[in-house]
Design a binder for these strands. Structure first.
Lengths: 342, 342
DNA sequence: CTGAAAGCGCTAACAC
DNA sequence: GTGTTAGCGCTTTCAG
């Protein structure tokens, strides 16, 4: 059973491919095709379940109606929520979305960009890693619409949207300070990404603003290469050594869940022995006793903003603002893990 | 900056598109193209970074080299792990994977199939929902390779791979019985899917095999429509009413995590007040005190098996076995939540 | 050994 | 109002 083509439809309806094409693309009015033939075409396409071959359409028009979404990882709760809102928004404008993950490997990221380019993708939403700069630049040179998300590349003049990482950490640290915690540790990772360095900056500067001396040994910087077990191991050692800590801030949710394991292993109580806040939400944090405070990213807003920036670039949507470098304020979810306990 | 085409390369290398195509597709030897011109072509393609336009290739060859993966949800840990192994396997054979999610909505599932079909996808791996039968049948009629995963449609003769749901529940229930639990509850959902009904069958039959009377009021069947809050609410009520229960089995991981919340709300201790096992792994289960036992699906094996079945159908891989309806045994992860406590 | 040319299914300028 | 036709970029048959 071979697929039916526009020619077949034309033949059956006793007309030409042109007319069929016009009718199907809603240009019947414009081209003043007669009602009779319009109806005839519509009914035969319906009857035979004809749908245009998108590949041919793409080749002919140069428009694939596909948007490429390159994220760090397609596992993960962040991606799940994001995909949903981006897909919904895209659909409104007749676009589809294809997902790719880089697993934080710049090589893989570059490859994904190339692959999407060969597939003639119309626009890109990218969570950029360090090594991807040149490839993103190439896209720009080719006039391909690009939006960066969750991070950005300072030297590149490309629209982006991300959470205000500095502000998020600041709010978290201040809430700990206000609850009476004095020795706040910070666990982060050695990724050379804006969002990570902004979080560290949030920690350092907030402490300074509150006249608290920043002590290097209160900061643990893990390697991205570390396995989950290694991370737990290192956090455990860190907590054992730094008994002066009465609170700890984790810069990402996977650090936070690893931290939870370490704390559990040490049989420390939260927040009595150590208070805790993690960046990024995770189902575990709401469930794990006594409830872990988090800095929640407004995922939906990030997704829809990214999509809007992209659609604007593609000329599908009115510019809603001249701003195209956007930081969105996160929300501090206050659970028991960061409360005072006197 | 327009993209460079095969014609341009031919012109620059002083040859014809044909020759370039042959060289690029590794047919230089076969066609006995001279070494000199082969080298010339290779160097110019490299120099200009030429890559064939996949859209044109697809149109011409009818092969998109893309596999469509339709799953229930692209959030979720199951999907994350699955995507990774499927993508890796696909890449070995020069295929790409595009993901779609149905969110358990048959309408959306049908739409996704159609969409992939218009994109000329070469093969499908589908997690089928009830309403998708006709569309899957259409695919078969069009000789499109299809593999079902995680579930199957009994009336359809299509290769599939899924975990042995019956066996998984059986092992879990037996481990509870062996630990001395007598009144084992079962929480499930009203989805009309093979894997769900098999899990219930596992519960019913295992009890019977151990001469335990199956009591209807020990079974809670939730609606798929229920929100997370409603589910927690209903499980809470169920536990409050059925105080005779000393253990409970959750048929899926989202039921399990909801159950955890209910148990937490009721301040019941695990396993002292109630023992627990959940189908499907989830990060929470390893972390939540005292550790929740689970029936773990061998995600990697399911993914690679599905991929193998598909590649075999597409004639890309030797048949490794004549069996194409495959059930894989799950693993019982024994944590403290299902241990005896006397 | 290499190249000309047809054609995959569709759109759209241009005819009539 | 409707049809003819020329490509989009590529592969592949067939003819040199």
């Amino acid at each position: 059973m071979k697929r039916i083509s526009i020619k077949d439809i034309a033949k059956i309806a006793g007309t030409s491919p042109t007319t069929v094409s016009f009718v199907l693309n809603g240009k019947a009015k414009e081209m003043r095709i007669s009602d009779a033939i319009t109806k005839k075409i519509l009914s035969t396409t319906k009857k035979y379940g004809y749908k245009p071959n998108q590949i041919a359409v793409t080749l002919r028009t140069g428009q694939s109606k596909i948007i490429g979404l390159i994220v760090e990882s397609v596992g993960g709760a962040f991606f799940g929520a994001l995909a949903k809102v981006i897909e919904a928004e895209a659909q409104k404008y007749g676009y589809r979305v294809v997902y790719c993950s880089t697993e934080n490997d710049p090589e893989k990221g570059k490859e994904m960009i190339k692959m999407l380019a060969h597939q003639q993708v119309d626009g890109y939403i990218i969570t950029p890693a360090a090594g991807m700069k040149d490839d993103i630049e190439d896209l720009i040179k080719q006039d391909k619409p690009v939006v960066l998300m969750d991070s950005f590349i300072p030297s590149l003049n490309v629209p982006y949207v991300l959470v205000d990482n500095y502000l998020g950490v600041k709010e978290g640290i201040e809430s700990l300070i206000n609850a009476g915690y004095k020795n706040i540790g910070f666990v982060t990772v050695n990724l050379d990404l804006i969002q990570i360095s902004e979080r560290l900056r949030g920690y350092n500067e907030t402490l300074k603003q509150h006249k608290i001396k920043v002590d290097k040994k209160n900061i643990l910087q893990l390697s991205y290469q570390d396995s989950k077990e290694q991370i737990v191991q290192k956090i455990t050692a860190f907590l054992e050594k730094n008994t002066q800590l009465d609170a700890i801030f984790f810069a990402t949710n996977y650090l936070g869940t690893s931290g939870l394991q370490a704390i559990k292993k040490l049989r420390m109580r939260i927040p009595e022995d150590i208070a805790m806040i993690s960046f990024d939400e995770h189902e575990i944090f709401s469930l794990y006793p006594p409830g872990i405070s988090t800095i929640q990213q407004p995922v939906e807003e990030i997704g829809s903003t990214a999509m809007n920036l992209l659609l604007t670039q593609m000329g599908k949507k009115e510019k809603s603002s001249n701003e195209n470098k956007i930081q969105i304020a996160p929300t501090l979810i206050n659970r028991a893990s960061s409360q005072a306990h006197n």
